[in-house]
Write a protein that binds this DNA or RNA. Structure first.
Length: 153
DNA sequence: GCCAACGTTGGC
DNA sequence: GCCAACGTTGGC
């Protein structure tokens, strides 16, 4: 069992959008970073839990919890010439971009802002603090629990 | 809007 | 394979 963090700009795709999605699930498409892809492809398992983080907004925050519902999913957007994420080098026979499907588990009653995370010495070595640009991140169990406590659970 | 950090590209 | 140049990300 591992913990993760997915970043998204709420204007593009918010946690609420995930909750509203069909079956509350979505294929996490559009990731075009190898570090992030490798985590999804090589490390994630069904039923792993993940934080959902809103970036590039007024108060960047962890806003919800989601769960991995499927792994080893070829990213369909890479095959779509109309998609901004199209990649001619990724084919159905040899997909370059492998992702996961995830579902909304629950929204946090008290979202945890990045500014608060940065005030916690225990959380100073979260990837979110160290490398905020990585769009899919591992979260240690210790960090997972510390964030949940900040969220009031 | 600024700017630092990071990732990717491409010439050599 | 190195590294400079460039583009992107994302907090502030």
């Amino acid at each position: 069992m591992h913990y993760w963090l997915f970043k998204s700009e709420p204007e593009e795709f918010s946690f609420n959008d995930l909750q509203q999605a069909e079956l509350g699930r979505t294929v996490w498409d559009g990731v075009r970073n190898y570090q992030a892809r490798n985590l999804m492809r090589d490390r994630m398992a069904v039923d792993d839990l993940a934080f959902f983080y809103h970036s590039s907004c007024k108060q960047p925050s962890i806003v919800g919890i989601c769960r991995i519902t499927a792994t080893q999913v070829p990213d369909p957007s890479a095959f779509d010439p109309q998609s901004p994420y199209f990649d001619a080098k990724s084919t159905p026979d040899s997909p370059r971009w492998i992702t996961v499907e995830l579902c909304a588990e629950q929204a946090l009653n008290n979202p945890v802002p990045l500014s608060l995370i940065k005030q916690q010495p225990v959380l100073n070595d979260m990837v979110l603090v160290r490398n905020p640009r990585l769009s899919v991140q591992p979260v240690s169990q210790q960090h997972w629990q510390a964030v949940l406590e900040l969220a009031g659970r």
